[in-house]
Design a protein around this nucleic acid. Structure first.
Length: 437
DNA sequence: TCTGGGGTCCTAGGACCC
DNA sequence: TCTGGGGTCCTAGGACCC
C-alpha cells in the first residue's frame, strides 16, 4: 500500500452530525396532520419503499420492500408517491436553522448535515450538548419533524453518534468514552466501510469498530489504502475530514440512467432510451452552465452485466445535436442484436464551465452560436411548459411507447399546497411539441 | 436486499517522455 | 536495442455513499 501522509487537524474538533428521522415520511406527516401516528410509506411511484414512518417500521416495513409484502405485514399502510419538491423545501429550512447556530454547515444530503461547532461554547455560553439540543428542538418546533444528532471529535464519530439513538436522539461521544461506543459496533456499520472491506477485515480477524480502531498504525498501513487509514484516524478521535461549507454548485459528472422492464431486444427502442438519457443529462448540464468533454454510454444486460464505452469529444458541449453522432457510433460499437437489455445510461464527464469552452480553428462558429440560441429557447420553453415540451425526434419512440402504456395515469397527481406552479402543461396533459433540430 | 438513480474518490497499470 | 531509473498523465474499474 502506498503511504502518503494524512492531514490531521491539530485542534480538538467538535463536529455535529444531524440526520432527519424517516425524513420523507416525516415530511408527509408534518404537512398532513391526518397521517400522524399512522404507518406512512413513500415511494408509491416506484412500487417500493423509499421511506417508512416509525409506525410502519414498527410493523416490520423496511426500505426497498415491495408493494405486495407491505400489504401483507401492514395492510393499513398509507402509501404515497414521493414529493421531492416538498422534501427539498423542508431540507432548505432545516439547513437554514443550522446556520443560525454556526456558519460552518455542510449539506451532506437532502436530510443530513455536518456542522462544525468548534469554539461555539464561548460565544453561545453553553455546552456542545446544549447547542445540539437547542437545534433539535428548533427543528421540531418550526418544521414538525424530528432529527437525531451526534456530536464528537470527528465526522465518523459524529455519524456513529447520530445513529446511536434514533429517532429524536442526541448522543455526545467524548474522547474518553469512544471505546464504549465502538465496542459492539460491527465494522460494516462504520461510515465508509462497506460489504467488501468488511469481508476483508473479517479475514484479518476484525469484526467490531473497536477492534479496528485498536489496531496499530503499522498494521493499518500494511493492509489498507488511504480511505481506510483516514477512517481509522477518525475513529481514534483524530479529525481528518473537514466540514466543507460550500454548497454544491457544480458537478464532476452528470449521469442519467433508466431501467425498463421487461428487458428489450428492440434496437430502436433501446437507442431511443439512450437518446433520452442524453437529452436529460444535457438539460441538467446546461442548467449548471457546464459543457462535457467526455461522453460515456452504457447498457446493462438482463444478467446485470454492463457494457459501456467512453468517447472523447472534439469540442466540449452540452448540446445533444453535437453529441448525437458520437452517441450513434458508440451505440453501434456496443449494441449486440438479439441480446435483451434492461437499462441504458449516459455519463457526461470532464465538465467545465460553458463559458470557458474554446473554439478551435475548425469549428463553425456561426453554426455553434445558432445552436446555442436554439437550445436557449428550448430550455425556456421547458421551464415554462414542462420538461420535454420540445425533444429530439430520435427520442420519440420512448414517448410513444410510454403513452401507449398510459404511464401518466398510474402516477397519482398529488401536490402539496406548499407548491404551485411549474410544469402545468405536462400535468394537464396538454400536447407536446416535437421539433427536429 | 438479487438490483432504482445519482454521485464521489481512490488505485493500479499502461502509455509516453527524458 | 533487451535495457536503467524516474516522472507524469490518463483510463478503467472498484468501492462506497445517500
Amino acid at each position: 500500500m502506498n503511504n502518503q501522509p494524512l492531514t490531521i487537524s491539530s485542534w480538538p474538533q467538535a463536529v455535529m452530525h444531524m440526520d432527519a428521522d424517516a425524513f420523507f415520511a416525516s415530511c408527509e406527516q408534518a404537512i398532513h396532520p391526518e397521517l400522524r401516528g399512522k404507518p406512512v410509506i413513500t415511494g408509491k411511484e416506484r412500487g417500493i419503499v423509499s421511506a417508512a414512518s416509525y409506525e410502519a417500521k414498527a410493523r416490520g416495513v423496511k426500505r426497498g420492500m415491495g408493494y405486495f409484502d407491505i400489504k401483507k405485514i401492514c395492510p393499513d399502510a398509507i402509501i404515497v408517491p414521493s414529493d421531492y419538491e416538498t422534501y427539498s423545501l423542508f431540507s432548505v429550512r432545516m439547513f437554514e436553522i443550522l446556520r443560525r447556530f454556526s456558519p460552518d454547515v455542510e449539506e451532506y444530503s437532502i436530510d443530513e448535515a455536518f456542522v462544525d461547532l468548534t469554539g461555539l461554547r464561548r460565544s453561545l455560553h453553553c455546552s456542545y450538548e446544549m447547542i445540539a439540543s437547542q437545534i433539535q428542538k428548533t427543528v421540531e418546533k418550526e418544521l414538525g419533524i424530528t432529527v437525531s444528532i451526534g456530536v464528537s471529535l470527528s465526522k465518523v464519530l459524529a455519524k456513529i453518534g447520530s445513529k446511536y439513538n434514533k429517532p429524536n436522539g442526541l448522543t455526545v461521544i467524548q474522547g474518553r468514552d469512544i471505546h464504549s461506543y465502538l465496542e459492539k459496533l460491527p465494522v460494516d456499520s462504520i461510515w465508509g466501510i462497506g460489504a467488501n472491506t468488511s469481508a476483508f477485515l473479517h479475514k484479518l480477524g476484525i469484526r467490531t469498530a473497536l477492534q479496528f480502531a485498536r489496531k496499530d498504525e503499522k498494521f493499518i498501513e500494511k493492509h489498507l489504502s488511504k480511505p481506510y487509514r483516514e477512517i481509522w484516524c477518525e475513529l481514534n478521535g483524530m479529525s481528518v475530514y473537514p466540514v466543507v461549507q460550500e454548497s454544491k454548485t457544480s458537478y464532476k459528472s452528470i449521469s442519467k440512467t433508466k431501467t425498463f422492464t421487461p428487458p428489450s431486444t428492440d434496437r430502436a427502442f433501446v437507442f431511443a432510451q439512450l437518446s433520452k438519457n442524453l437529452e436529460n443529462a444535457c438539460i441538467k448540464a446546461r442548467r449548471y452552465n457546464l459543457a462535457a468533454s467526455r461522453l460515456t454510454l452504457f447498457l446493462r444486460k438482463k444478467d446485470f452485466r454492463h457494457i459501456g464505452i467512453e468517447l472523447k469529444l472534439n469540442r466540449s458541449t452540452a448540446y445533444p445535436s453535437e453529441l448525437f453522432e458520437p452517441l450513434v457510433q458508440g451505440f453501434n460499437q456496443i449494441y449486440q442484436n438479439g441480446i435483451p437489455y434492461r437499462l441504458t445510461g449516459v455519463v457526461l464527464s470532464g465538465l467545465m464551465p460553458e463559458n470557458r469552452v474554446q473554439f478551435s480553428l475548425f469549428d463553425d462558429t456561426t453554426k455553434i452560436e445558432k445552436m446555442a440560441k436554439i437550445y436557449t429557447s428550448i430550455d425556456e420553453l421547458s421551464t415554462r411548459f414542462g420538461k420535454h415540451t420540445v425533444q429530439h425526434a430520435s427520442s420519440l419512440p420512448v414517448k410513444l411507447q410510454m403513452q401507449h402504456k398510459g404511464d401518466r395515469k398510474d402516477v397519482p397527481q398529488r401536490k402539496s399546497d406548499l407548491f404551485k406552479g411549474e410544469n402545468k402543461r405536462q400535468r394537464l396533459g396538454l400536447p407536446m411539441l416535437h421539433v427536429q433540430v
